[in-house]
Design a protein around this nucleic acid. Structure first.
Lengths: 334, 334
DNA sequence: TGCGGGTGTTTTAACGTTCAAAAGCCCTGG
DNA sequence: CCAGGGCTTTTGAACGTTAAAACACCCGCA
């Protein structure tokens, strides 16, 4: 494996000149640069990242803790990881995966990775209400950026990127309204997670704006399973005034809604319009296709990386991105 | 951030002694070790991995290319990644993610990561028939291990770990047989991928062993969607002698089977037994639960890491692991 | 008393890179 | 002909660690 020294010898220049050819080519006379580049090419030289990192104390690696929530399906995690990787690579960086206990118990792992210089900083996801990790990292001055707001806080200890769930619900409601729905229900989650509250609020507010009823139209599901979606949908359909549209908090719940509709001989998109959230791979794979709110993964990822690697000013960076409604057969015929 | 030198000064020993305290503690006199450890603790010292890697030329990082197959759902990828991370961490290693073009076009990326010493080696997945990556890496002497055999080759250029798909199908057939099924169909994929052939062969051979019919009972689906599963199942049920059991090549196809059964008023697990493959999160989330073949992810991951990091002998390591049948309501009542 | 051998610790020299500063070169203008 | 300044290139040192060799010390034994 060739080193700078060998390239330098071959090109008959000093080591530093070769280094400059790579890092600051404008400093070299064109003919020197040409000569050095030829030697680099010829010897198939690749800079040793460890040596570079040692000198500059920047590893260009970003830590991401791969979540392990046994009860929750991560249907879009591979999309997220792919986008994150791609975004990191546009600036010559990479993603380092690791595991850690949830919440604050995992923090020593983060600290260790940073202290041993395996990573420059972290991307956090699976943010929870009052997530203690943010404050912890900030206090230790470990760079990070969060995918997901720490909800209900007036000030947030650190930069974040998030998707506007309220706006997403509103989009879904508006779409269902546009195709003629007038009683639009909402399938929600159990515990009042920040995520659920955000999306629920968007539904309620948009319904109000449009003069649509909301009373008796929001149902809380016990967990994020198809079965729960089925149950909740059945309850809605059995009520005195059944809905003609259903906005579900997740694709899984929406799938439950689709199934219950099917069981009753109702046609999704014709008799009742259904939308999901996150545009997971499932949405495309079911029939009829599930109308769902796509998170702008590429944008999310690049904002995360930009914030983390950019020379951030003192004020914390905060980006609220808009989801996109992907319309399929479950909400509109054809 | 404390360095070896500072710890050495604090403990009043040489730098090397501190290094030994960490890497070869048996060389130190107990009292010295104690003293050094106290200083390490006190100064909160963490070894700088870059300096170490530079010196030892081992980064303890394993590359994994995050796949980007837009048409395929990676329902178990997060499980795999989690297991891989955890396995790597048991030997102090970590996973570095990257993106690369598929097949041989991506090889320069692998080469570059290795040459620049960002990783020690690679874990390959999404192996395809006659995958060219294996030979390429072997020729360049870049360490790797493959999750998935290169099918149809008599000899394989490198170590691999795989799950015995044929045995999996056989397990499913045996199970359906045990609960009284006598006409067991198989839902397969389109192109004769090695994976599909393997699983199909297991079904056929097990049916033969049990004296069950196979003729007219294997259907090829156009793609891995619920819709295709529905179509194929419908075709089977419409035939002169419909099956009473269905082994599907994937959970997605199995979901299609479940749906078509439901549409016809047939009860999965009672009228027709259905099994899937991979035990994706979906299997648990549908109702009735989908009987499916779980890949032993933890075992797969630890074998991959062991092979990659172990002092492998000359003979390539090859591990064929057995899947486990997770029985749920789709194949047996209750 | 001297000497071999083990044990514990220190010294020396890298690993491959970049930073800061110094040095060399070449041109221009007085 | 030389001072001065702008390019270009080189020199020296450092980043934090570990491998290998050297060293110091103690013990038992001749």
């Amino acid at each position: 494996m060739a080193t700078l020294k060998q390239v330098a010898a071959h090109a008959e220049v000093s080591v530093q000149t070769v280094s400059n050819a790579l890092n600051a080519p404008h400093r070299l006379r064109p003919d020197t640069l040409e000569r050095v580049n030829r030697s680099i090419e010829l010897l198939n030289y690749r800079p040793n990242r460890n040596a570079r990192s040692l000198r500059t104390s920047a590893v260009e690696l970003i830590g991401y803790c791969v979540p392990d929530w046994p009860n929750q399906t991560h249907l879009v995690m591979d999309q997220f990881l792919h986008a994150l990787c791609a975004a990191a690579e546009t600036s010559g960086r990479h993603i380092l995966l690791f595991t850690a206990p949830p919440a604050v118990e995992g923090m020593p792992v983060y600290d260790d990775l940073h202290a041993r210089r395996l990573v420059d900083g972290f991307v956090l996801s699976q943010t929870e209400t009052h997530d203690p990790r943010h404050g912890w990292l900030k206090e230790k001055q470990i760079p990070f950026v969060s995918f997901g707001r720490v909800w209900k806080e007036t000030t947030q200890p650190g930069p974040w990127v998030d998707v506007d769930g309220a706006a997403g619900s509103a989009l879904a409601v508006q779409h269902l309204y546009d195709v003629g729905r007038r009683r639009i229900a909402f399938l929600s989650w159990p515990k009042s997670s920040g995520l659920a509250e955000d999306r629920l609020a968007g539904w309620r507010s948009k319904c109000n704006d449009l003069g649509l009823p909301t009373s008796g139209l929001s149902v809380h599901c016990g967990e994020d399973t198809i079965e729960e979606g089925v149950r909740a949908t059945a309850a809605l359909l059995d009520s005195a005034q059944p809905p003609d549209g259903i906005v579900a908090l997740s694709d899984i719940l929406a799938l439950g809604a689709l199934r219950e509709l099917g069981r009753r001989g109702l046609t999704p998109g014709v008799d009742v319009g259904v939308t999901g959230f996150d545009d997971s791979p499932l949405a495309e794979v079911v029939s009829p296709g599930l109308t769902s709110l796509r998170q702008p993964m590429d944008r999310i990822a690049s904002e995360l990386i930009n914030i983390l690697t950019g020379t951030s000013t003192g004020v914390p960076a905060e980006r609220l991105l808009q989801p996109e409604l992907v319309i399929r057969g479950s909400s509109a015929p054809g």
